[in-house]
Design a protein around this nucleic acid. Structure first.
Lengths: 248, 248
DNA sequence: ACAAAAGTGTTGTTTCTACACCCATGA
DNA sequence: TCATGGGTGTAGAAACAACACTTTTGT
């Protein structure tokens, strides 16, 4: 009776106990240093085992009564002070044995990481150095080996950031209220790489869309003709919401 | 000493205990009934509380030693038999009180749902009806009120499916090995809606990309000129991988 | 012969792209 | 007046959208 045997096997599997989880939230927090044209990610030096003294993404475990997003905002607030930011959920990494604590723990508690991705304004972000801990903006191109699977999470976040820039107005969440078109262009080039579009075409496309309005105010940066300051007009952008708009 | 008071407050919050989680995986499984031009989603009738006798997404709790993706494949395999499928993680829903079991449980166990999104081939999918449970393909346009926050998860999955179709070759994961260009077009129209492109332009664009190769074999469906069967050439597609290609 | 399904072509328009060029300012 | 950064324009190529049209089949 092979059917019965199979049934028995299935039952054994069904009786495999459920895993108990602790849920962590890890943030990939990006900012763009427009002065030096570098994309930065916020890393913290771990103060406890596992991975003591390794750099890693700022993270925390979720507390009772706290939503995932709340937890994400909490870490962020513990590490930096910012006024404007963009934040969204990234991915959930949850294979067994991604955290070495699982092995030593005989109760089989699993650690699962829900990662969030954030973009903040570099100029206004003030790092909060708590006690002896290390905290630093690292150029994305030069991050060292990180704790856990954080390199993987970072890579995933970087990909998402690039995509977001191309088809959504995240850039404006992180630029000052008014900015020059060159500021915007710099932001795009440092995130996307040099060769995504030339400035004049980028400029023409953006202006044609009609949600950037010229304030008329001019600003001079060293030599050269002064640039106009523009403002992102959220109202004029509304019709493009959710449409397959492309910024590149 | 306001600093000290604030410190005390912060400590109270820090002592807030961590939440204990059970992690569920819920699958949004889509298929396309090309004969009737309908987009379908797989629903199951819940056999236990909470939400007894409500329709819901097929889901399960994650077991010890099981990865999230493993759990997603397990549910899928319990409900349907398929050869080809596309599966990817969707989103993690984890606010407190999304599951009524949390309230009654004094230990404060939280239920978190990692949702996965799948696309399977309707014609080859065989539903596995276990015991008395209900299981059914529901037209997406006519899903009733579902258990938990499953309507929300479904909506999220539907949005993702539409996006995926536009810029990635998921369609071919779910079409037969060889298919007519009309099969492909039908699939797109039933998922994306009638007015995304007319057939001749769709056809021209796809063929120009060059990763659909004509097998030369003709197939006749009722009256009318027989159609060529095409095959998706994964190798020829490779260069487009990860590029902002658009199919629409 | 006719309707139905498949496949091809055409045409006017819009959008890319790669430039060249003009403008305003500091040194 | 020259170098520098800001801003405009344009011509050729490519892509798009809306159709009309031809081909091949079943009935």
């Amino acid at each position: 009776m092979p059917g019965r045997i199979q049934k028995k096997l299935a039952d054994t599997l069904n009786q495999q106990p459920l895993a108990d989880f602790k849920v962590g939230v890890d943030n990939v927090i990006f900012s763009v240093d427009t002065a030096q044209n570098r994309l930065l990610v916020l890393l913290v030096m771990r103060q406890q085992e596992p991975f003591l003294n390794y750099w890693g993404l700022p993270g925390t475990l979720v507390r009772r009564g706290e939503s995932l997003e709340d937890a994400a905002y909490r870490i962020l607030a513990e590490k930096i002070k910012v006024k404007n930011l963009y934040l969204e959920q990234l991915y959930t990494f949850g294979g067994p044995n991604r955290d070495p604590r699982e092995a030593s723990d005989s109760y089989g508690v699993r650690y699962l990481s829900v990662s969030y991705f954030a973009l903040v304004r570099f100029e206004e972000a003030q790092l909060i150095a708590d006690k002896v801990a290390g905290i630093a903006w690292y150029p994305v191109k030069r991050v060292p080996q990180l704790a856990f699977d954080h390199n993987e999470i970072l890579a995933y976040g970087h990909r998402r950031l690039k995509n977001k820039l191309e088809y959504s107005p995240v850039a404006f969440e992180v630029l000052p209220e008014t900015f020059t078109l060159n500021d915007l262009y710099q932001l795009y080039t440092t995130v996307l790489g040099e060769n995504f579009s030339d400035y004049s075409n980028f400029r023409a496309r953006l202006l044609k869309l009609g949600f950037l309005c010229d304030t008329g105010i001019k600003v001079s940066r060293g030599a050269g003709r002064p640039a106009s300051l523009y403002r992102f007009d959220a109202e004029a952008f509304a019709p493009f919401k959710d449409k397959p708009l492309v910024f590149i």
